[in-house]
C-alpha cells in the first residue's frame, strides 16, 4: 500500500486585516462622535409662594426695556447704564453692600439675547443672589 504523502495544512484565520477593519470602525466612530455637553447659565427659581420680604436697601433692580436698554432702578429713580459699564457698576454696588440682591426685570418685547447677556454679566460680576422678576402682564 502506498501511503500518500499528504501535505498537512493548518486551518488558519487570516488576522492580518483585523487591524484594518478595526481602524476603519474607529474612523467611523471618530467622525460620528459628538462630545458636546449641555452647557449654559444655571439658575434656581424660587418656588411659588416662596416670596420673601427683603429690605429695600438690599435690592438692586435692573430693568431691561423693550428697546433692549438697561437701567438701574434705585430709590425711585431710573439711571440708564450702558451694557459695557454694567459689570463695573454692579461690582461697585456689590462691594458697597455684599448682601445685595440683584433683581433682574426684563420687559415683554425685550430679546432673550439681551436677558442672557445681562445675566451673564451679573454672574461674571460675582453676584450670588440673582432674582428674576416677572414682567407685568401685557396691556
Amino acid at each position: 500500500m502506498i501511503q500518500r504523502n499528504r501535505k498537512r495544512v493548518m486551518p488558519e484565520i487570516p488576522t492580518a486585516s483585523m487591524a484594518d477593519i478595526a481602524f476603519l470602525l474607529i474612523v467611523f466612530f471618530l467622525v460620528t462622535t459628538t462630545m458636546n455637553q449641555d452647557k449654559g447659565l444655571s439658575l434656581h427659581l424660587p418656588g411659588m409662594g416662596e416670596t420673601k420680604e427683603v429690605q429695600q436697601k438690599n435690592i438692586c433692580n435692573i430693568w431691561i426695556n423693550d428697546q433692549d436698554q438697561i437701567a438701574f432702578f434705585e430709590e425711585d429713580d431710573l439711571t440708564p447704564v450702558d451694557f459695557a459699564n454694567l459689570r463695573a457698576e454692579v461690582e461697585q454696588r456689590l462691594a458697597a453692600n455684599p448682601k445685595l440682591i440683584i433683581s433682574l426685570k426684563a420687559q415683554r418685547g425685550s430679546t432673550y439675547r439681551m436677558f442672557v447677556d445681562v445675566l451673564d454679566e451679573l454672574k461674571l460680576s460675582g453676584a450670588q443672589r440673582i432674582s428674576i422678576a416677572e414682567p407685568e402682564a401685557q396691556q
Binding site: H44, M48, A106, R108, Y112, E134, P135
Partner: peptide, 23 residues
Amino acid sequence: DFGLVSDVLQELRTIGALRVNFA
C-alpha cells in the same frame, strides 16, 4: 421674545421645576 421665556419660567415655577439652565 423674553416675555414668552418668562411665561415658560412661570409655568415651571407653578409645577415646582425650579432647577433651570439657560442653554
